[in-house]
Design a protein around this nucleic acid. Structure first.
Lengths: 295, 295
DNA sequence: CAGGTTCTGAAATTTCTGATACAGGTTTTA
DNA sequence: TAAAACCTGTATCAGAAATTTCAGAACCTG
């Protein structure tokens, strides 16, 4: 008799996922006294009150632990951990919303698509920079500025292009720079020469590519230093990497965005060029002269 | 009852919210490899990654549970629950004061290079988007979405990598896509097959490369449609290009930044993928299946 | 006011989490 | 090159947390 199969809400909340808090407010009437106390506590400190232990929650609400359990069960969760998981996910989604709000809304075409895409990418860049430890970045700069080291760039299907981009710049700034194809057959032979003096800079984002991982593991086993540019979920290469620089990659697209990786790459190029300026300058001038002579 | 009812407080942080994240970034270099992985995971999903169980956190970070425990102990917490409590409190405090968002912007001097570089790049992206004519962008999307067209990507020394990046994506979304090396010797032969049905997408920024220009001029003479992604000063290719998308490239570096070009590329990929979704989806699934079979 | 229903919490039970000891392996130091 | 220090994962344990059971309390209902 409690539910006469009514439609829930005349104006159903449109876009946003129905927050748990909202649902609790709507169902408040049907709660028992104990459940109401639990609901009030949760709503008044939403959602943090629910992130504590059952005992803590019960104590703060002035009810017993079983009552709390009955409350969350009544809300449709399989147990208290399930309930907490939902709260955390909801909170995380809400906190990341400024980025998520722009993307799904306007599916128009042309400029709006470009503009919103750009905003998402910009958000990625900011997030990327904030999550990079300055010391880590500096350490990589120092590593790539060491003239005694040999630098090898590599990457996967899509990120391979970024590795090439990095290589094409570093090649001019300093010596001992090359690009390694990801396919095992193409690098197996060269591995014999990889050792402690070598640095592997690998680009690898999700749908992590096994051959790139294999390359890095082999190189690491030989004593090479591995630097990894990846996404926040970390390629398995992180296992053997000495330095890891994660970049945010999620964009309103069926594809991931590599803009963050490019940003890091260009920042590294800029920093290393500055650091090696004394030797880089003449190299750059020479390259320029050779180019002109040729044509 | 075991509570000594005493707040443990090593360094009284009563001034500003010295975010735990910030501290981790500063101490990053003193961490062991395992600890770094834990730190990276936490920072990349701050602070939600830390609200799970130890086992979950360890698994996601790719390390063992004890390493996680050692990590939080090293940060000065008495145990994992204490660590989680701190994260919750920090999160709650931050969520209640929207003005706290200004804090992460000003880094001391750790890597102002990276932060300011990022800001410059972001400025480039905004400027790029504003200076693109929506109609021009849409026209390019339509062109690249035409299944009867054959698409060829090319670029110069540095921008060639971007052309490869574009090609590696479009190749999956649609058929008749390839990459042309910039050196004349490598494309002269193929020019015989270039005609009205072909689209050349060229990447070229200052220090404009003569061979790329030559390629485009030849192709245009044969009736091909040329799309140019360049800088605001426009590569000479613009004379024969049907569509031109300029991107801002100036950065605080001895090198130009290609981030704007990458943004346009990714936006084009996203738009074309969406437009061709009916045919692109099965293609992407097939590619995925082939990849899995192979490995 | 009895009988039935619903609600609630104390205590018992079970599950699972966080913590520790220890040993193999690696890097650093002498 | 050998020794020492350090790092890290496996196995294990202790204890806390969530869950269930069950009996009593509160509240209708006729």
């Amino acid at each position: 008799m409690n539910q006469s199969s009514m439609r829930r809400n005349p104006p159903p909340p449109r876009t946003e996922p129905p927050s748990l808090a909202e649902r609790i407010r709507l169902e408040m009437e049907s709660f028992t006294p104990s459940e109401k106390r639990a609901a009030h506590l949760l709503l008044s400190h939403y959602p943090f009150a629910g992130l504590d232990t059952v005992a803590e929650f019960a104590s703060r609400a002035g009810i017993s632990a079983p009552s709390v359990l009955r409350f969350v069960t009544r809300l449709g969760f399989s147990g208290f951990p399930d309930f907490q998981k939902h709260l955390r996910e909801e909170l995380e989604a809400q906190l990341l919303s400024p980025l998520a709000k722009a993307s799904p809304s306007d599916k128009g075409q042309g400029a709006p698509a470009l503009a919103s895409f750009a905003e998402a990418v910009i958000g990625n860049l900011r997030a990327t920079v904030e999550n990079i430890a300055p010391a880590e970045f500096d350490a990589v700069v120092a590593l790539l500025s060491d003239p005694r080291r040999h630098i090898h760039f590599t990457g996967g299907r899509f990120t391979g292009a970024l590795a090439r981009y990095a290589e094409s710049h570093f090649r001019i700034v300093r010596s001992h720079v090359d690009f390694i194809e990801g396919q095992p057959a193409l690098w197996r032979d060269r591995m014999i020469e990889i050792g402690r003096k070598d640095v592997i800079v690998a680009f690898d984002i999700r749908r992590y590519q096994e051959d790139v991982t294999a390359l890095c593991e082999t190189a690491a086993r030989q004593g090479a230093t591995v630097v990894l540019l990846t996404d926040p979920w970390l390629s398995p290469i992180a296992r053997v990497a000495r330095h890891v620089l994660p970049a945010h990659i999620v964009a309103p697209s069926n594809w991931d965005s590599s803009a963050g990786l490019l940003l890091l790459t260009e920042a590294l190029v800029a920093a290393v060029t500055k650091r090696l300026w004394e030797t880089a300058k003449p190299r750059m001038e020479t390259v320029e002269r050779l180019r002109n002579e040729q044509s």
